[in-house]
Nucleic acid binder design. Structure first.
Length: 589
DNA sequence: TTAGGGTTAG
């Protein structure tokens, strides 16, 4: 059945003339607008809520002749943007029952709808409808499915589908499909694979565009490879693809996270020189970066600057600054910000609450944190696992071990599924208070779930064992990591090196350092500090000074604990100072 | 021309 395109109806829409239009409903206002202006008018803007959308749908299906599939597609898109996925499904079924013709667009919308519901398996069940209706799949169909796989963490399936499409020449990927695959890969931590795909793409007919470059630049920045990101950034410019606000924002975020403030300034100026002005997200990235480095006063200045430029802070900006105050122990200031936000009619979400709760816990005000936890549901928000983990940690911090255990039981009874962080917090708490047997018994109980464990979880266990003098056991767990497919990180090595150093086992520490370097994990500031302290404690001054020089040469510096220990040694034996010619510069750093 | 792609907070 062929439908007359609505745009050819001389400004009137036949199917709408049968509908009685009461004045009150916004949908009806929209229909009225459509009648007046034809299909080009935006009824999308008039549909404000689910009721509007549903009412419009029911009116549409009663019309004679029926509206075209284009109008149904538009309406479904609105419902999807409102996240009313199941309503889209039921309405699509109704459409099918009524025999309203379908096309590739609306079927692709249905596939995407299932993928957004995290039901990629159901999305595949739409494919037979294409076949039955003689409609061909296209690149959009497959792109949506690939995205669906990634959304459900099915990276292997996503990549296999993509490879199959290319290998069997089922569908030639376009820029969007490449971007979808690369974004999926990068968000799951496969930065190198993302970069390889970019290089592969350069050799094929579909060339990387702004989106593709921005995805890879963002991935490199998130992994801390800011130099590689800059190289790629320059490469895209040389190829005549100008970066936009998102590319700059990703790059600036990378520099913020590395504390490279000069580069932040350089690229902020560069973007403005190119008439690309920072928006609320760009400013929030800078504010968050400053806050995380403890530079809250600078963050406040940036906030004033953005307001001066007419850019209003949003909930994320306020949350970042609240977290900045909390990290410095200024939970009361964070509470001002929090109340100010409410005054500005910005309703706090669970992340805001969790930040504030963490702030109270950090100040050991667990009662305040608990009080706030109770208020969350009253204000229409819902605590999540992170909120509960924060309180659990807070209870351990103040030594309320019994309450922490009860709280853990309570959170499970409330239906929360403990995550790795929950288990890590419990184990860390047990180890902190010397409850090694309890910790290890719990650790053994978790054995079945260990396949999901990450390196940070094992770092907690290794650290706990080291701190409790169980170095052999810690070392044994370390040795098992590779068989579990886990790669030790700098924290793992530093924890074990600290453990050995504290026991005066400097040879074992050095062995561990060698392993660290052999495995491509570079020693960091913590590693050097731990070694300097180890040598100082064992009174190995000459070895300590050699290391100290190397440390300074590599751009690292003594932290507060090391400096204090070094000063104590110098007080007892002033001649040590002569062996450390650059001590003053070290202290200054 | 109704479908699919990139940035910020616990």
């Amino acid at each position: 059945m062929k439908r007359i395109p609505l745009c050819k109806c001389n400004g009137t829409i036949p199917f709408l003339s049968f509908v009685a239009i009461p004045r009150s409903c916004s949908v009806n206002r929209s229909i009225s607008a459509m009648s007046k202006f034809g299909v080009n008018s935006n009824f999308e803007k008039e549909v404000k809520c689910l009721d509007d959308a549903v009412n419009l749908f029911h009116q549409m299906v009663r019309m004679k002749p029926l509206p075209s599939v284009v109008d149904f597609s538009k309406l479904f898109k609105i419902m999807i943007s409102m996240k009313h996925y199941s309503t889209v499904l039921s309405h699509f079924r109704e459409m099918q029952k009524l025999g309203i013709p379908i096309n590739v667009f609306i079927l692709n919308i249905m596939i995407n709808n299932y993928c957004l519901m995290h039901h990629v398996d159901c999305a595949f069940s739409v494919l037979p409808i294409y076949l039955k209706s003689g409609i061909s799949f296209n690149v959009v169909t497959f792109t949506a499915l690939i995205r669906g796989f990634f959304a459900e963490n099915k990276v292997k399936d996503a990549v296999e589908l993509f490879k199959k499409l290319v290998r069997e020449k089922i569908c030639e990927p376009n820029e969007v499909m490449y971007a979808t695959v690369m974004n999926g890969l990068s968000k799951k931590g496969h930065t190198q694979k993302t970069l390889s795909l970019l290089r592969l793409m350069e050799q094929r007919s579909t060339k990387p565009d702004l989106f593709i470059y921005s995805i890879v630049i963002d991935a490199l920045c998130k992994d801390g490879y800011s130099d590689d990101a800059i190289n790629l950034f320059n490469e895209m410019k040389q190829k005549g693809i100008p970066p936009d606000i998102l590319t700059y924002s990703s790059l600036i975020d990378g520099f913020c996270k590395l504390g490279q403030w000069e580069k932040v300034r350089t690229y902020l100026s560069e973007m403005v020189n190119h008439n690309i002005y920072p928006d609320v997200r760009t400013f929030t990235i800078v504010i968050d970066g400053l806050c995380k480095e403890g530079k809250v006063a600078d963050a406040e200045e940036v906030m004033k600057h953005m307001v001066g430029k007419g850019v209003e802070p949003d909930i994320i900006t306020y949350t970042a600054i609240m977290d900045g105050y909390c990290l410095r122990g200024q939970v009361d200031r964070a509470r001002r910000v929090f109340d100010f936000m409410i005054d500005k009619s910005i309703e706090p979400n669970i992340i805001c609450y969790s930040v504030l709760i963490k702030g109270y816990c950090k100040k050991k005000k667990v009662a305040e944190a608990m009080k706030l936890l109770g208020e969350i549901s009253q204000r229409g928000s819902k605590p999540d696992i992170v909120t509960y983990n924060t309180i659990l940690q807070g209870l351990f911090e103040v030594g309320r071990i019994g309450d922490a255990k009860d709280f853990y039981v309570e959170m499970i009874s409330l239906g929360f599924i403990p995550d790795l962080y929950t288990h890590g917090t419990l184990l860390n708490g047990y180890f902190k208070y010397g409850l090694v047997e309890e910790a290890m018994s719990f650790f053994d109980k978790l054995e079945r779930k260990r396949e999901n464990a990450n390196i940070e979880f094992f770092n907690v266990v290794i650290n706990g064992l080291c701190k409790n003098g169980k170095l052999d056991k810690a070392h044994a767990i370390f040795e098992k990591l590779s068989s579990m497919g886990l790669l030790p990180n700098a924290r793992t090595y530093n924890t074990l090196i600290t453990g050995f150093c504290l026991k005066g086992l400097l040879d074992e520490s050095k062995d561990m350092l060698r392993k660290m370097e052999d495995n491509g994990c570079m020693p960091d500031n913590v590693t050097y500090n731990v070694f300097v302290r180890g040598y100082l404690r064992c009174n190995k001054i000459s070895e300590m000074t050699i290391l100290l020089k190397e440390m300074v040469r590599r751009g690292f510096s003594c932290d507060a604990t090391t400096t204090e220990l070094l000063l104590n040694v110098i007080r007892e034996n002033p001649s040590v100072l002569d062996m450390i010619p650059k001590f003053h510069s070290i202290k200054k750093k």
